[in-house]
Design a protein around this nucleic acid. Sequence first.
DNA 1: GCACTTCTGCACCGATCGGTGCAGAAGGGT
DNA 2: ACCCTTCTGCACCGATCGGTGCAGAAGTGC
Lengths: 199, 199
Amino acid sequence: MEKAQIGRPREFDAEEALQKAVVVFWERGYEGASLSDLTEAMGISRKSMYAAFGNKEELFRKALRRYSEGTVSYIVDALEAPTAREVAEAFLTGSVRANTRPGCPSGCLGVQGALAVGETGRVARDVLTEWRAGGQEHLRVRFQRAVAEGDLPAGADPDLIARYLMTIANGMAVQAAGGATREELLRVADAALLNWPPA
Amino acid sequence: MEKAQIGRPREFDAEEALQKAVVVFWERGYEGASLSDLTEAMGISRKSMYAAFGNKEELFRKALRRYSEGTVSYIVDALEAPTAREVAEAFLTGSVRANTRPGCPSGCLGVQGALAVGETGRVARDVLTEWRAGGQEHLRVRFQRAVAEGDLPAGADPDLIARYLMTIANGMAVQAAGGATREELLRVADAALLNWPPA
DNA sequence: GCACTTCTGCACCGATCGGTGCAGAAGGGT
DNA sequence: ACCCTTCTGCACCGATCGGTGCAGAAGTGC
């Protein structure tokens, strides 16, 4: 993978710069984040950004990937909880924590990054739609397994349960973007889990 | 209120044009909707738009007001339901219907109109944040009344119940923007109401 | 040291952004 | 008929958008 070192090496840390881009996209959304905003935060010139990441859309894709591996890696952990109930708990409390992390923008990049957009944001919007659907699909598969294992009743609908949880998580992202606190959202998560399974 | 008719009257129907603007903002968001997009859909020139509505921010405010009075007027109706449980049901099913109305953009203008934005969208974002908070406050007051009337148990927390319902509604807006169908979301609404009150 | 590659910063590209100035047309009220 | 106001369409404003061409600096392998 690593090509032989030929020519002048870049002066900045690409991972570090990408993390800065994540924050800008997270805070302003794809369309609201201008190249000037991005490169200024990343501490590099436009030319260096294009050489290292391709273009704005590619930068967004890579930022989302980094966001997935970092901020919202709780999802992967949640899926490994021993029972469906614990999966749901870990997923929702993880969402709350990610949406209200001190020092980070409020809400979720995957939700507010590009929800309704103009022509220029179509790709970013579709990327995020697919990203959210992917997360929901992981939940669905996990709950399907839980049904097979007898952890959930035979009549339970894995698709509905996954969508139910993802809907709550999406809603909490909107709430966080609007200023809701971690404590307020944790209470919502508790309320959402009062009846389990929800179908 | 009506100023005496002096000078040439405008050639277009302001209400009709405003409704077109609602759809464009709803579909593309505040920043994603350019003046060209808006005026083209409204069928009027830039100059006529500025004369009739002020500027883009004012147009957005007026579009949101019209949206409130039209598409999401179900909230007002829901608040008048006789019991807290029926209020919750009417609110959630109304949300689902509004988010998945054939011929209209998917999702909710109040959510996807301006969630994460750049400098130019700050005002629109704050307007929507306040708008969502206002809706939640109406629910809270209604549930507070329900507690006073004994319709909800004395220990119930109106603030939490209102936030819980608004979180679900917000989440369903995100789901609808991602392509969820009316039937799928109605099942989510049912699941969310399985335990009542949720706290 | 040399050749080669890739870096960086700056100026610049056409397109589009929100918003206006202007001129002329068109409808009042009297 | 007149005046006066407000309409409309078009061209245009400076600013900013995402993206590049260019020149020179700076590193690597030989």
